[in-house]
Design a protein around this nucleic acid. Structure first.
Lengths: 198, 198, 198, 198
DNA sequence: TATGAATGAGTTTTCATTCAT
DNA sequence: CATGAATGAAAACTCATTCAT
């Protein structure tokens, strides 16, 4: 009695998730080159051969994960582009991010993955463009808008954007390396240089 | 007629510096595993064999560089432990760090190297201890002192310490990956959540 | 559909035997350092990479073979420790050994392997202890017992033991280096200094 | 004030002896491939470069030492070819050899060197011919002569020759590997299968 | 779908040899 | 004569990928 299409699909999907999970965990800590297919397969509880039925290469898996990270980042766009008061948006943003960060390692792992990808420099330059140009521009614009409204503190908006994302990346790495010695800062600390105190 | 001991020492030292320089540059960008000995040797303008007359393995070079980074970090200790007013110390610290960061890539590279080492997790756990326990403790104590003097803003001192070092690491990585699109934040932004505005 | 555990086990075992065979042959002639992994792999009809799925290093294979040799040597213990008449035991022993020696190269190769290992000196000192202390002691005791029974010729028993094993090692090497110009001595010659003529 | 020719000659000779000594010691234990030029130089207390002013390659040194060993072996020829009574010659031979063996490690080292050379198989086949054909033949003839005189025990003369040289090689190796746990057998034991007891 | 044996190209590492001083 | 830095080719070892089952 052969399985139905759906059953196969479900098995595939389950396996793929295990691979992605293992890959995310390992890549975020040890990078693309520091992680072997064998490690990923073992960690995912499958054979190396099976890996190649889901991804045509190690880099393919890596890129898939980086893309997921990028897409998650893009989810922030709608928030950044909303017409609400900038300080409220930023508050909501940092609240949300710190909440994510507290919840599980996953968000931090994705963030660190982006870092790895950026530092490698060569491959997938499109993502860098997406990530930077789009997200950075939107954030910079938001800050500029907030400043002209008198909502936000003065200072170079691009500098502020850079500081914000740098801090985020830095926190993600700290979380992964310090493990349980890590504590998330309050979102107020995170935005102290941005939002005026009331 | 052989050269004198001093001449040999000088030759060795010159070569070693070229290796360290190339290693720092490459490791900080591509990590331990992403960098090949061949790349380092080529970048240093020497043969691969010569590498091994200075370091017994690739990891040995990596660890040497990480140790240098740690020791540089320890140079901050005297500043953190001075009896001056905490807010002044922190101001001086962030001024100094941002100045370093602006001057050249080297500081950022060393910082990122530490990150790589921390993320790898396994080797050289002593450094983690040095780096964390000592530096973090001193910073935390400084903040605590500043708060009780009414000098600094309220908030969990350990959280603040973590945020500070996270930001630093994050900025270093951004600097290396964004290259000339990177701009350093002002030291006021860096310490906005710490130092009371006057 | 993957193979069964047993099928895999059989494949592994077959390959391992080919490696061991090639290793024994080459190591016994050219020593640990004189033999390259490439040679072993070629001689075994496999790729170099496959070697490392069975042994984690060249030395690992070498030690495995030496251990086999040692264990084979230990098989003599029961004979040496039997309560039979010492002269009969020694006769049986040298008959057996010369027969082994005549049959194939393998015994000689294992013996020479032990020599190589002993001469290297450093690694696997336990074997030396096993091999020497245990086997030598038992042989010495046997000779002592035979002498007090008036069964064997007089002379320092330890000296006799050493001579016996030295001769064995020497014959093994001669067999391997002279190839078909080698002829085994009769077991009477081998024990002439031990067993009284009747 | 430049040195005289003789002084230079003396220095050269002294250095060469140190090299030969170190080489003999190391090669006999670890073989040609197991010994590095660096080790030899260090052990001889000189630089690697100086090695090459005396020998054009590592093999050159090895062969030089093997040749010395061969020539020393040839010194036995006159003894083997003398017209004396074969049993007396053999007695004198084994007495002499055991005395050499007791005196220092050098003889044993040269003997083991020959073994290494023989086992390598390829290079310097001439020596094998010299060593075997000549020495073995002479020994075999001597034994044959002794047997026909009724001087020596019966048995295949070639077998006896082989046993004699095998034992010698084996003892040399034992001496080098057992170090101070080694004791030389009496020359009577060594020739028990050859010489009739009186 | 799933397995792990097998490959081979690439990486790390070693070391005999050269050479400027 | 003497040194040890430097090279480069060869050896040891790793690992992404393929493939028969």
């Amino acid at each position: 009695m052969p399985r139905t299409k759906e059953q196969y699909e479900q098995i595939r999907s389950k396996t793929k998730n295990k691979i992605r999970s293992a890959g995310l965990q390992l890549f975020s800590h040890k990078g693309l080159n520091g992680t072997s297919i064998q490690e990923i397969a073992t960690s995912a509880g499958i054979s190396t051969g099976l890996m190649y039925r889901h991804y045509k290469s190690k880099e393919d898996l890596f890129n898939d994960l980086v893309n997921t990270a990028i897409h998650a980042g893009k989810a922030l766009e709608s928030l950044l582009n909303s017409d609400d008061c900038p300080s409220a948006i930023l508050k909501q943003l940092s609240d949300g991010l710190m909440h994510e960060m507290n919840k599980s390692d996953e968000s931090a792992q994705y963030l660190v993955l982006i870092t790895h990808s950026l530092m490698l420099g060569d491959l997938e330059q499109e993502m860098v463009e997406s990530y930077n140009s789009v997200l950075f521009d939107q954030m910079t614009n938001l800050i500029r808008r907030g400043q002209s409204r008198g909502d936000l503190k003065p200072g170079d908006p691009y500098q502020m954007t850079l500081l914000f994302f740098s801090t985020l990346q830095g926190l993600a790495m700290m979380k992964l390396s310090l493990i349980d010695r890590f504590v998330c800062p309050s979102s107020e600390m995170l935005t102290a240089y941005l939002i005026k105190e009331s």
